[in-house]
């Protein structure tokens, strides 16, 4: 009956969240004490896409964002963009983003009725850190040809920042869940 408006709404959520991931990447990096790599909010946007929109819409939002980067918009931190970032040594992390968002979303959907801050943090770490690093490190080893040990240790510097982002993602997702329970709406 009103499937047409709900499909249109899904389209708008996907488009606006893709724009949000871009906007989060454009704000200057926040320097934090004890963290070697500066934190950019962009991967926070990737985790949030899954945690708030759910698996399918979340992954689509990330894909739309990556498409904007691919067609030549400088939306990655430091104004990077274009096709070159998908052929570069760290492209695996980008390919892991939509999968990571999907996994965070799928876990949130599965445990929606009893998800709390702790569970949401755990889900954000599984999808937003483990999955993304798996793709990133696999690409470094298989395509770039980096030795496995070097690929692992080289990526470790970014883990603390991403763990903080998973905590932030969980806290934001819990706030938004109360005000805007999108995953519950789509399941109903």
């Amino acid at each position: 009956m009103n499937t047409s408006i709900s499909q249109t709404r899904d389209l708008a959520y996907v488009a606006l969240f893709a724009a949000l991931i871009a906007a989060l990447g454009l704000i200057p990096a926040i320097p934090l004490p004890f963290i070697p790599a500066p934190i950019t909010a962009q991967t926070l946007g990737v985790m949030l896409a899954g945690a708030i929109l759910g698996s399918r819409r979340g992954a689509l939002a990330v894909l739309v964002f990556l498409a904007l980067v691919a067609i030549g918009l400088p939306l990655l931190p430091g104004g990077r963009g274009g096709l070159a970032v998908f052929a570069g040594p760290t492209a695996g992390f980008l390919f892991g983003w939509p999968v990571g968002a999907f996994v965070v979303g799928a876990l949130m959907e599965r445990f929606w009725d009893r998800v709390d801050f702790i569970l949401a943090t755990f889900f954000s770490i599984v999808g937003g850190v483990f999955v993304i690093y798996f793709f990133g490190i696999a690409w470094l080893i298989a395509v770039v040809g980096v030795a496995p040990l070097a690929a692992l240790t080289g990526s470790l510097a970014f883990i603390p920042g991403d763990l903080i982002k998973a905590v932030v993602c969980a806290s934001v997702a819990m706030t938004v869940k109360r005000a805007y329970p999108l995953i519950a709406q789509s399941r109903a």
């Binding site: 989060l24 909010a41 949030l48 932030v168 938004v176």
Partner: peptide, 16 residues
Amino acid sequence: LTALASPLILRALRMA
């Protein structure tokens, strides 16, 4: 980051 992301997302969802 929490204080930035929460209101931003709520605004984006309302816009959507």
